[in-house]
């Protein structure tokens, strides 16, 4: 009888010690990993405000956000109509233009090709919009992939109009 109790007690002590030790080890590892996450000065720059008052229709500006280029284009009525008229069946990555540009006059996109990361050139390519010279991806006036190896449309970041002249990205 006593022989049964003894091993149980002994095992409990060792199990408890291992468990408490393992918890401590895990808790210790976390800061060592978390310090590699973005620090608070980087996180503070995770949003940026852009003054769009001086952009003419048909013109694009490029700003830096989180280290990446952002294309902000003030589209002409012609461009908006073209973008809306595209049949979703023709798109590799189907997406309505109204989903991409809530305010159709303004197109805000991350200027990084979804293939391998080059910056596409503006006012170029078969669709007279954006063309990536690295591997020949063509994007249309809504930034959607039409031809070439890129798998997805140019990413739309989170943004909002602070007022008529300013948008906040991120």
């Amino acid at each position: 009888m006593s022989k049964e109790i003894k091993p149980k007690r002994r095992d409990f002590l060792f199990t408890a010690t291992y468990t408490v030790g393992a918890v401590g080890l895990g808790v210790t590892i976390w800061p060592l990993v978390d310090q590699m996450n973005p620090d608070s000065s980087v996180k503070a720059l995770s949003t940026t405000e852009v003054d769009i008052s001086s952009i003419e229709p048909g013109k694009t500006i490029t700003v830096l956000w989180r280290g990446k280029p952002i294309f902000i284009r003030r589209r002409t009525k012609k461009e908006i109509a073209e973008a809306a008229a595209v049949d979703l069946k023709d798109l590799k990555d189907p997406q309505k233009d109204s989903e991409r540009a809530k305010n159709p006059e303004w197109l805000v996109m991350v200027g990084v090709c979804t293939h391998l990361g080059c910056v596409p050139l503006g006012d170029k390519g078969e669709y007279k919009a954006w063309f990536c010279p690295c591997h020949g991806s063509h994007y249309d006036s809504s930034g959607r992939i039409r031809k070439g190896p890129a798998p997805k449309n140019l990413e739309i970041p989170k943004y909002e109009f602070v007022d008529n002249n300013t948008i906040k990205i991120g």
Partner: peptide, 13 residues
């Protein structure tokens, strides 16, 4: 100072 203030757990390291 950046490590002490901004880096996650930087002060601890």
């Amino acid at each position: 100072e950046h490590i002490m203030r901004d880096v996650n757990y930087g002060w601890l390291m």
